Amino acid sequence: MEQVKILDPTWMKYFGEGTTFILWLTYFPSKILGLSYTTGNLLFGFLGFIGIRYIFLLVYNYFPTNHDILGIPLFPTVFYISNLHFWTSGVGKDSITFWAISWFLFSIQQYKEKWWQATIAFFFVYMARPHMGQALIGGAAVAILMGTDIKRSYKFGLATLAVIGSIFMSSYTLDALKLEDFDLATLEAFSSSKSGNLNTVNVGSGVNISSYSIPMKLFTYLFRPLFFDAHNIVSFISSFENLLYLWLSLFIYKNWSVEALRDMPLFLKAAMVTFIPVTFAFMNALSNLGIAMRMKNMLMIYFYFLFVFNCT
């Protein structure tokens, strides 16, 4: 609660976007029930687990076949990737955002019955990280228009709602982020300022991306740290994960098909359309590999499943 100084603090005075939203969520269990920070980690970790369960069910139900590497099946092995659990197991925006994005995608995949759940899930994404909520609702609109498994009457209705929602929320998103517009330069400056002192080359996982070309920035964001970047056990373990992503990326270039793109389930289309602008925003701003691993964890697993789907 000391992260945000509020005179005469009460529960609703903490309500807002970002960190204040997390303080609002934790006010009752912390201040009223007196639960410890360890208990809070268990509660938020449980939400992270529910998010993983949503993704597990989506892949189980909508992916036709599996693929393996060296005899090891990609599904369900992906659900044991370390960073997937590291960033979704504690009190903070990461657990909430990951859980809510998974819930949102799970709900729009079954939009006829669960559209109202998508609305609730979007609320949590937007309140925890407004820029992610804005990207997610825009991604859902484009994915719905691209979808071939949605009836035309539903498609235009859902897409219209998503577009209207995206436009309506844009002004609130700018206010929440204290930005004037959504141009790339503004988003880069915002991401850099939010990263603070860790976003430098003076820390163990810092890199000087200002001198990198655009392809190298993209490679750094998606696939590093690799083993030559490892400076502790966490980055060393992450290197195995990033090496897997890199290998699958090279594999998919050889096996890409238009049919696979067309036949992707709605949730994966929405996730990938969201993933692209978020990636381009962060790759130009985050010069700390640890922060990059944290920020890309919200959507990276869907990037992974893009490979799995196209390898089948």
Rank of each mutant, 00 (worst) to 15 (best):
M1Q: 10
M1N: 11
E2F: 02
K5P: 03
W11T: 02
Y14D: 04
Y14V: 06
T20P: 02
T26E: 04
K31V: 07
T38H: 07
G40V: 06
N41S: 13
L42I: 10
G45H: 13
G48L: 14
G51M: 06
L57I: 04
Y60K: 15
T65Y: 15
I69H: 06
I69D: 04
L70I: 11
I72S: 15
P73L: 01
P73K: 03
L74G: 11
T77F: 14
V78L: 09
Y80C: 05
S82G: 01
G90A: 09
G90V: 01
V91F: 05
D94H: 04
I96Y: 05
I96T: 10
I96R: 07
W99M: 11
Q110C: 00
Y111Q: 00
K112T: 09
E113C: 01
W115E: 00
A121H: 09
F123P: 06
F124T: 03
R129L: 03
I137L: 10
G138L: 13
V142Y: 03
I144P: 08
G147S: 15
G147V: 00
G147M: 01
I150S: 06
K155G: 08
L158Q: 09
A159H: 14
T160N: 07
L161K: 13
S166V: 01
F168Y: 11
F168C: 05
S170A: 13
A176R: 12
L177W: 07
D183S: 10
L184S: 08
L187A: 12
E188I: 14
N197M: 15
N199G: 07
V201T: 14
N202F: 03
N202A: 00
S205N: 14
G206A: 08
I209E: 05
L218S: 10
P225A: 08
L226T: 14
S235A: 13
E241V: 04
L248F: 06
L248Y: 09
L250P: 01
L250I: 14
E259A: 12
M264C: 06
L266R: 09
V273C: 05
F275Q: 09
F275H: 15
I276P: 05
A281P: 00
F282N: 11
F282Q: 09
A285Q: 11
S287F: 00
I301Q: 09
F303G: 10
F303C: 04
F305M: 12
L306A: 11
L306I: 06
F307L: 07
V308N: 07
C311N: 10
